[in-house]
Each structure stands twice: as C-alpha cells, then as structure tokens.
Simulated scan of single mutants.
Amino acid sequence: MIQARIGSDHDFLRLTADGFDDGAPQYLLAELRLQGLSASVQVVHHYATGFADLAEFFQQHVNDWRGWDGVRTWESLERDLKIDASHQYGHVQLRVTIQRFQPDWGNDGWPATGDLTIEPGEQLSQIAQEVKALATGS
C-alpha cells in the first residue's frame, strides 16, 4: 500500500493506492480529514493516463513555487475528487472536494469540501514525490 498525505497533522487529504495492475494503481482511496469532518471516496484511474496527471499537477506547483496567477484544477475522470490550487500569501492553498454520486431514488449523493494550506518549499516537494510514487506504484 502506497500513501500520500497532503496537509498538516490534523487537516489533510490522504491518498492510498490499491488494486495494482502492471505496477500502477487501479484506484485510490481519497480520505479528507478536517476538524469535525471525515469523508472518503474511492477514485478510479483514468484508462489512458492512470494517475500520472495528478503527479504532474503537484510537480507543476513545485516548479512554480514562487507563485502563479489564478486557480489550477485537477479533477478525476468520474469527478469524485477535485483539487483547486492557488498561490496566496506565500502559500499553496488547496480546496479539496470529494463526492459520492448515488443517482438512485432521487438521491444525488454528497460532497465534502475543505481547504488545506501547504508550504511551497520542502513540504510541497515531499508531497509531489509521494504522489509520483503513488501514481507509478513504486
């Protein structure tokens, strides 16, 4: 089991890879934990890219650690995990949304959204390395 933890000791998004096929994970368990909130959802990989685009998303922020304009977004194929990233006040601000769709009996499912603050130096580099390892299964 390979994990990436994004955030602090108390507020974080934990991604756990599982269901490996040819070394790459078939899905991730995304767990959002914030003060007073705990939610999780299984995220299925994209058939063409796996989770390589998620690793590239975080590496792009490492490369631009001094900042960027606007909001950058990564979203899973099934839209059950979305991460918006912006650079504000010298930090990387992540807005994480996980949601479970249940389109039966008039039930639309549920969303859970929370904000995480990341230091743009060593903390962000460590996260990018963990997500890359998670995406490649190594």
Rank of each mutant, 00 (worst) to 15 (best):
H10G: 10
P25A: 06
Q42Y: 05
Q35N: 14
G7C: 04
V44N: 10
H45A: 11
I6C: 03
R14M: 06
I6R: 02
A39W: 01
L15A: 05
S38A: 08
A55L: 01
A48G: 10
S8I: 06
Q26L: 08
A55E: 00
D9S: 10
L29R: 07
G23N: 14
A24S: 10
G23M: 13
L37V: 10
L54H: 14
Q26M: 09
A24W: 03
H46Q: 14
L54P: 14
L13Q: 07
D53K: 15
A17I: 05
H46G: 11
E56D: 13
H46E: 15
I6F: 02
D18K: 03
L37T: 13
H10V: 10
P25R: 13
F57S: 03
A30S: 11
L13S: 09
R5T: 08
D18I: 03
D22Y: 09
F51D: 12
L32Q: 06
G7D: 01
F57I: 02
F20R: 15
R5I: 04
G23A: 10
L29Q: 14
L15M: 05
L32P: 12
R5G: 01
L54E: 14
L54M: 14
D11K: 04
L29P: 13
I6N: 02
D11N: 12
S8Q: 07
G7M: 00
L32N: 07
R33I: 07
A52N: 09
Q42A: 10
P25Y: 01
F20K: 14
H10I: 08
E31N: 11
Y27M: 09
A39T: 15
L54Y: 13
Q3S: 12
L13Y: 04
A24H: 08
R14A: 05
L15Q: 07
F12C: 09
L29H: 09
E56V: 06
L37I: 08
L37G: 03
L37P: 08
F12R: 04
F20Q: 12
E56R: 15
E56F: 06
P25W: 01
I6Y: 01
A17Y: 01
G19T: 14
F51E: 11
L15Y: 01
A55G: 03
G36Y: 05
